[in-house]
Simulated assay, not measured.
Amino acid sequence: MSIKKLTQKILSRRRLSSLGACALLLAGLSGFAATAAAQSAPTLESGQKKVVAVVLTQSKVVKDAQGREQLVDASSVKPGDIVEYRAVYTNNTGKPVTGLVADLPIPEGLEYQPRSAKPGAGLVQAAAKDAVFGAEPLMRKAAGNKTEPVPYADYRSLRWTLGQLPASGSTAVSARAKVETVAPATTQVSVATPTSPAVPAQR
């Protein structure tokens, strides 16, 4: 089944929202969304030019005859496939943009692959359905006042705190997910970029 149809099915059941009062939302054919947020600035647009532009791509991860990984076109997927999502953020201005945050939701039917988020270390956090972000691996309360790891199939979002994006600079985030289920699409869905009052972005 095509990724476009998978996206339509996922988006028909999931409400995509902006991060805080200022966000730029792009929905890729993968069903993922990339959100660029500049803190303390309700908009990332200046006139007709976006202050921070986001390009989201998706590729299927395969191995060649020698066992080396390759990224190929992901126009269609099936259960068991591994897909890599990459969002590139570009500052279209001549001044630094501060407070840059990147969100990558993980829709139902896709299982986040452990430690695949890049950049990792202290820049990325994950969250399950409760939307409480924390370092990977996530933990939850279990019986007897114990804690246990949250299954990676329950991860629903990744968030990178990228900080400052230099003037005319670019940065990228990526993560991998395993296709668990592919359901037929039943609803046509369109996604638009949310609007907000025009307020100069913090520099």
Score class of each variant (00 low, 15 high):
Q48T: 12
G31N: 10
L162V: 04
G99I: 02
P79N: 07
A172N: 02
D64Y: 10
N145M: 12
G163K: 03
A33L: 08
A135L: 12
A185Y: 08
F32M: 09
S18R: 15
A21T: 14
A153L: 06
D154F: 09
K141V: 06
R15V: 11
K9Y: 15
K5G: 00
R159T: 04
V54G: 03
T161S: 14
L100H: 06
L162Y: 09
A192K: 13
G94N: 14
T93H: 01
R115I: 07
G109F: 09
E108W: 09
L165M: 02
G28D: 15
K178V: 13
P194F: 08
Q70G: 02
A185N: 08
P184Q: 07
A135P: 00
A87F: 12
K49Y: 09
M1Q: 13
K141I: 01
L162M: 12
P114L: 05
P119Y: 13
L158N: 03
S46P: 00
T195M: 10
G67Q: 07
S76D: 12
A201F: 14
K129P: 00
I3N: 01
S17Q: 10
L100N: 04
V61Y: 06
N92F: 11
P137Q: 05
K141A: 12
R140A: 05
A53D: 14
T195A: 11
F133H: 04
L71A: 06
K60Y: 08
L71E: 07
A143E: 12
L110G: 00
I106V: 15
A192G: 01
V150R: 01
D73H: 11
Y85S: 03
P137R: 07
A23T: 14
Q202P: 00
Y89F: 15
S59K: 15
A126K: 05
S2A: 05
V55E: 12
L162C: 03
P149C: 05
L138F: 11
V88N: 04
A87D: 06
A192Y: 14
A126L: 15
A135K: 15
E108H: 10
A167K: 09
T186R: 13
V51F: 03
E148V: 10
P151R: 09
A41P: 01
S59R: 15
Q66I: 05
V191W: 10
L44D: 01
A117R: 06
Q66P: 00
V101K: 11
A117M: 10
L138N: 03
V77P: 02
L19K: 03
S30T: 13
E136Q: 13
G99D: 02
K4N: 06
Q164V: 15
T186I: 04
S18H: 10
S174E: 03
S168Q: 14
R14V: 09
A33S: 13
Q39G: 03
T98K: 11
E136L: 14
G122F: 14
T147I: 11
K178R: 15
T181S: 08
Q48H: 09
V189C: 03
L6G: 02
K118M: 08
G109I: 05
T181C: 00
